[in-house]
Every structure is written in C-alpha cells, then in structure tokens.
Design a protein around this nucleic acid. Structure first.
Lengths: 200, 200, 200, 200
DNA sequence: CATGAATGAGGGTTCATTCAT
DNA sequence: GATGAATGAACCCTCATTCAT
C-alpha cells in the first residue's frame, strides 16, 4: 500500500529534522494529514517504523558477492553510494546506540548485520591486496583498515556534526577521504595511480 | 553538598545501565530513596544533571599546556586516562548526538570543547614530530591522524557496542591501539621502539 | 462535537461555584467522568477553555448596529439580557483582572472588546438624547454616564458579592437600576414616563 | 520585627507587579534574599501575608468619627488619600473576588468592613446635605450616590486597567471625578462653588 | 531568629495505543 | 483501510510546608 510508504517517508523526514523522540506517532500522523489510528493500523508503533526504515536502509547497502568492489575505483564508488544512503537515513546513525538500547530486536539485528559488514570489508581489502592495489607489510594492517572503515561508515556523519560543520550530502565525501588517508601508506604504485585518477 | 554528588552518581549509574530517557527524574530519585521534589531542588531538571555530568567528565580530560603528551609513552598514558574517563561516563558518547539535539546549550558547549580538543590533538601530534617520534612524508597526515584520534576517542565505546563485544573497561585499550595503528606507518625508529616498550 | 460543549459546560459550572484555580483540568475531567487525556485532546489547556468561554459570553452580548437600543425600554431590555449573560459566566468578571494577568492574549482581546463596548455605549446614549429621552445640560455628562454604565456592567456582580448579598440572578436587576439612577437627573419627561412604565 | 515588615514589603511589590498566584512564598523569600523557612516562621502562609496586607491597607483608610469629611473639599481630600492607599495595595482590588474566594476569613472580614464603609459613606453624604452642599429632591439619591462611591473606590483601578490605560498613581484622580460627576446634579450653589475651587 | 534541605501531593500535560464507527 | 475520540499511565515539575541544625 502507498500508505505504508508514505508513513515511512513522513517519519524519516521528521526523524532527520529533529530526533526520533520528538517525532511522536501523533506528530507523524498529523504531518501526513492522517489519523493516528490509521498510522497504528499500518505500524504497531514507532519502533516498528524505525525497524522498517533500518531494513530499507540496510537493503540499499547490501551487495551481491559478485558486486564486491575489487578495485580502488569500485571501493570509492561503493562508499559514495553508502554515504548517500546513510545521509538519507542520517537520523539512524545519529541516534544509533540510543535506538539500539530501546529495541532489543533492532539491536540483535544491527549487530549481526554489522559483523557481516565487517567481514565483507575485510574481504574487500584482501581483494585489493590480491589485485595489487594494497601491500601489507605486517600483520593487523587489514584489521586496522577494517576498523577504520567501519568507524568511518558508522560515525562519520555524527563526527561531522560534533564539529559544528554545516552538514549536507556534499560533505560526506570526507568519509571516503578518511578511509583513503588510512590506506595511503599501504598503497602500491598501482593503487596510488588509481587514487590520483579519482581525485582528478 | 553531599546530596548533589549523590544525585549525580545515581543518575550516572542509571544512565550507564540503560539510557537517559528511561531514567526519569522520578526514577533517579526513587533509586536514591529521595523525594522527586528534593531532586528538583538540587537540579532544575534532567538536562541540568546531564550538563553537570558532562562538565565533570570534561574537567577530567583537560590538560594544562605543560602536561601535553610529548612522547608516545605520554600519549598512551593520556589516552588510557581518557578511555577510563569516557568509560565512566559512557552513557554520554553513547547518546551523544541525541543529547546534543535535545539541549542547545550542551550542543554549543560540546562543539566548542570538541574543536578545542581537536586543536590540542594537532599540537600533540606536531610535538611528536618535533621530538622525533613521527615523520610525515606528505601533507594532510597530521590532519588525518587528528581525525582518526578524534573519531576514536568519541566513538570507540559506541563502536565496540555495535560489534556486540562484551564491554568492559579492559577492552578500551583498543582505543589507543587503533590510534597507534594509524600512526604506525609514520613512526620513526625511535617511535617504534617506544611503542614496542609499551606493548611489552 | 458534543464533548467540546460538555467540557465548556462542566468547566463553567466549576468556575462559577469556586474559582478557576481550584478547578484544575483534572477536576473538570473527573467531574465529567472523562479522562484527563480526553479533555486535553479537545482543549490545549485551561486557558483555552477560559478563552473559549469568554468568546461564548462575548458573542451573546454583541449587537448588530440596527439592534442598538434607541429607547429607555430597549436599553432596559438589553441590560437585562446582559445581566443574564454575565450571570451565566459570572466567574469571568469575578476574576477578571486575575484572568487577564495570566493570559496576554485574553487581555488584549478583552481590552479591545471593552473599548468597542464603551464606544457603543456612548452611541446608545447619544441616541437617547436624539430621541428625546435624555437631555444633557453640560459637557461630559455622556462620558460620565458611559463610565457608570461600563463600571456597572463589568463590576456589578462582584460589587454585590462584596456586600455579602445572597446572590442570584434576580438581584442583577440592580445593575440597570444603578444606571437608571445615574441617568435620572437628565431624563426628559418622556424619559421619566418610559422609566415609570418599566418599573410598573 | 523588621523582618515581618520586609516580608510584607517584598510580597506587596511582587503582588503588584504580577499576581498573587505567580508570587509563591519561595519567590517572595528569594526576592528578599531570605530562606523560605524564615518566611514561614514569620507568616504561616501566603494567605496570612495577604490578610496582613489587607489589614495594613484597611487601617490607612479608617477614619475617626470626628474626621469624617463634612465638606466637598474634605471629601475630595479623603478620596485622594483613599486612591493613594488603594494604589499602593493595588493587587488587592485587582484580585479582590479571587482572593476572597480563597480565604473565607478574609472574605468575612472584607464584607464586614465593606458594609461599614458603605454606612460611613451614607453618613458623609447625609452630612453634605446637612451642610448645604447637596440637595436631594427624591428618595434613593443618597443610596445611589453611595453605590456609585463604593463601586468607584473598589473598582476604579481595575476599571482603568480593563481600558488598557497606562496606569499610574496620577490617573487615579479620575476616581473622585467620577463620584463628583454623579453628585453634580444634586449640588447646591455652595456645593458647585466648592467644586469649582477644587478644580481650579 | 534563621537556614535550607527535604517532603510529597498534586499540577498540567503528553502520548502510545485502542476501538467503535 | 481509515477516522478521531477516548483512555490512562506516566512524565516533568512546583510549591507550601516541615524540621533538624
């Protein structure tokens, strides 16, 4: 039904503008010119809306195994995509831990997805090594780069907000630049060349 | 007065255990065997309690200029201290953006403090370069390391939580290890030696 | 909706019996066998109820220009009507200044309405002169009579209460008698005759 | 004790500025730099303060029998004095009926005093007749003038406020002018002359 | 006399949720 | 599917009042 979609869109807008607690179900319904009863007919409660929004966001970040970025360029493209998606649902990472603490189901799901995400990041990095973009002279480098990447994807938007930066989608480019900064010492000449082409 | 301290301690405990929204002023008062009226006699509202807890935390992280870490060892010591303090007030970074969105005064204060913090991080890194621990072969490295450090200090605890790690103070050592991982390619032999001694 | 009306009626009853402060929104709801939530669903707060009651009262006192009393008899009829309306909403003038001090919007509205009321009183008195009921031998008589009328309409009920009179609708006849007492020296024979017929 | 007086003065100031409900005992104490406990040591509660302020005001309006105004000039002087006193305690008539509804003791006292006041007004008016200032051609004139006077003394300040007039002590002169307006048709030449001299 | 921490009932209000229509 | 009135528990907070010091 279109109504279900409209509710998600309206809630997302309010969540992004303020915070999830300020946007009560009645507010959301009112903003959509809809009765509170109808909203609850479609979604049991606000948590259900948030969970659904998370699923939507999550669905847009998933990759088929064969789509896994296997080059610097592809990684950049993927992270740009990710930044765009996370920006669209920016309320989510903004309140991440708060939301998880209020909904055990969401928490379990998120942790599962996040661990899987981390696993994929390691695979992608290993692929970059295999493809001659990266060179890891000692242990734990891949682990470190994976942590950096995960931290950046999860918290870059909150990070920018805590610096008081005027925040818009454009600034999210920094998310990739940060990851690139961490990879740089380990880039092969091929990797450096690829990076230079992206920046150009 | 002792009561003011007791309220802060009781609120901190509840905030860390659950979340700030779940710990209503009445809950806090009840947990302390105190009347709601008395709690409000000492603190205007929950925001005032949170603000005060932030100030306490902040006060414990501040450094006199002459105390600024000027060696890898000192940096490690300082970050351990920081991790300890942030662990004590872990609710704060857990809900960071949510809390800032609910209290404009806290937000302004936090951003100001955070920018100052970033400035100090850059100074410390520059000091490490001057003292022969670090060597920066190209531009932006210091910027990158500062971002890494700031991200880690602010979000390492949330980061661990999103991985489902059983969380305790001990695990916070990872915060420094992450920063160290970022610095490693830029360490001089002197820097590497210092690091090896810390790890031993 | 009927509920909105019921709330106004219930609130009016309690306000008239005691005072507006004693009749809390919860009291009103309880007296109507209604949940507090429902009362606030219909009226934002007590001020909104009071404002609405004022508007109701005010609406019942307004006159179309062509209905303006142009004879002593018509004036009497109008003042009887006024006394009846003000009696119905007697809490309002009882707490008049208190209520105005608590609600700036109501205050602005009341003053505007009151000045308009005064203007109409002057017009009515001038009409009585034109129609040969009144004769004004020197200046300021109309002004004086207008003040008297306004004072009487606003404060006659409070005035009676401060004399400890057992108060009921019947006693409000005094409101017109007071105004008539002020007009008497200026009545023409025609005016006196009209008055005599009213009293008979 | 000086403290008792200071409390009355502080309360009076706050009452006049806003309204009695807004000025809580804690506010009054705070405004005086005094502890709430101390305030309650001197006055059981806010009602006691209000009652005491009423007594003060009342005491300043009372006349020894031999001081009773027996001329237009003396009446004018007395009403100017009254206006000054009522202005000083203007919160009282502003909230008159509200205050009476909250304190049965005050109510009983006020009604008693008010009836006595009315009695004295009638005596004064009768004295003016005896002394050749006034002439009453028909019955009830004295009653009417007494009502007018009482209404004016009690409600002139509230009356001015409901017209939105900028209110200060100076404007209270209108209180006497209103009474004079009512007496005018009944003044003898001697009375008119006295009045003319006052106005000059 | 004076302090000020402490009480606790109750204030207005919010809001997720239900349910008859 | 949709409405919107209704519920009621809970929220934050106020304030007259008490009382140990």
């Amino acid at each position: 039904m279109g109504t279900k979609k409209k509710i998600l869109a309206g809630a997302l807008k309010l969540f992004n503008e303020g915070n999830t607690q300020a946007a009560t179900t009645n507010h959301i319904a009112a903003a959509l010119g809809m009765s509170p009863g109808n909203l609850h007919y479609h979604y049991k409660n606000r948590e259900a809306i948030i969970l659904r929004l998370y699923e939507e966001m999550q669905a847009q970040t998933e990759l088929e195994p064969q789509e896994r970025p296997d080059s610097i360029e592809a990684l950049h493209a993927h992270m740009s995509h990710l930044a765009h998606v996370y920006w669209t649902y920016r309320f989510f990472h903004r309140e991440l831990l708060f939301l998880l603490s209020r909904d055990p189901e969401l928490k379990a799901r998120y942790i599962r997805d996040n661990l899987a995400h981390r696993g994929r990041i390691v695979l992608v990095l290993a692929g970059l090594v295999d493809n001659g973009y990266l060179q890891v002279p000692y242990d734990n480098v891949l682990e470190h780069l994976a942590d950096t990447t995960l931290l950046a994807t999860q918290f870059w938007i909150p990070f920018l907000e805590t610096l008081g930066d005027p925040l818009d989608e454009y600034h999210l480019e920094g998310m990739f630049q940060h990851v690139q900064g961490a990879m740089r010492p380990y880039l092969t000449p091929k990797g450096l060349k690829a990076l230079a082409e992206i920046s150009a």
